[in-house]
Design a protein around this nucleic acid. Sequence first.
DNA 1: ATGCCGTATGATATACGA
Length: 267
Amino acid sequence: MKISIATWNVNSVRAHLSTIEQFLAARQPDVLCLQEIKVTNDIFPLDLFNQHGYVHHALHGQKAYHGVAIFAKAAVPLEQVVRKDWCGIEQARHVYCTLPGGVELHNFYVPAGGDKPDVENNEKFRHKLDFMTDVSAWFKRRKKKENRFVLVGDLNVAPLESDVWNHKQLLRVVSHTPVEVEHMAAWYASHDWVDAVRHFVPEDEKIFSWWSYRSPNWETSDKGRRLDHIWVTPTLAPGLAGVEIVKSARGFAPASDHVPVIVELSI
DNA sequence: ATGCCGTATGATATACGA
C-alpha cells in the first residue's frame, strides 16, 4: 500500500491546535508524527484528531516539555506501540510502532543541546551527543537486511552545508557543529539509512524545515536550517515516491517554528 | 556578547528552545 507520512515539530499541540487543524484539513496525511507536544497524555486534545479521521493514537507526552505522538487514519492501524527512554532520562523523546506490512515507524525528538557546543561545560550538549550515540548503537545491534524501518522527527541537526543558510557562520552554532554532524553520520550509518528528502532534492540545493522565531522577517531573510528528517532503511528505499516540505505552514498564525515534512512511499 | 520571539509554569520572572 502507498501511504503518506508527515512529521512536524508543533511547538505545543495546545497552542497550535488551529494551525494543526488547517494542515490536516488541507493535506490529510495517512500518518502524522508530532514532536514537542508539551502536554501529558491524560489531557491531550484528542477530539480534533478523531474528527479528522485519526482514530489510531500512540501518545508519549509529559508536562511542559518535549513529548512525541503518532496518529493514523483508520486504514493504518498502529500496533506494538513502544515508548522508549534514552540515557536513563525520562523526557518522552521517542515513540515507535508497527504499521501494516510490518513496517516499524520511529518518531524522535532529539535533545536541542543548549547554547554552547561544549561537552565539558554544557550538560545538554553532552546529553544530545550521548542520545545519538546510544540510539545508533541500538539500531546497529538490531540491523538486518530485511528490516523495513521508517525514522522521522526533529533530529535537531542540520548535517549538510546546504541544510543551513550559511555553513561557515553556523560551524560553531549548536545544530551544525562538526561533532554533531559526526554523531549524526554514525547514526545514519547504523542501519544504512536513506535520507528520503535528499533522495529527491540535490545535495547542493538549500532546503530548510525550521526558521527561528527571533527573525521577524523569516521569509525574506530565509535564515533557516533543515532539522526535521525522514529516513528509511534500504529495503524501503525503492518505494519512495516523493517528499514535500510544507514551507507555507511557517506563515500560519500562530505558527510553529518548524514546518511539516511529508513523504509518500509504498510499504 | 546580547537580544531578538514564542511557549509553559503552583507564573507576574524564569527556563527552554537551537
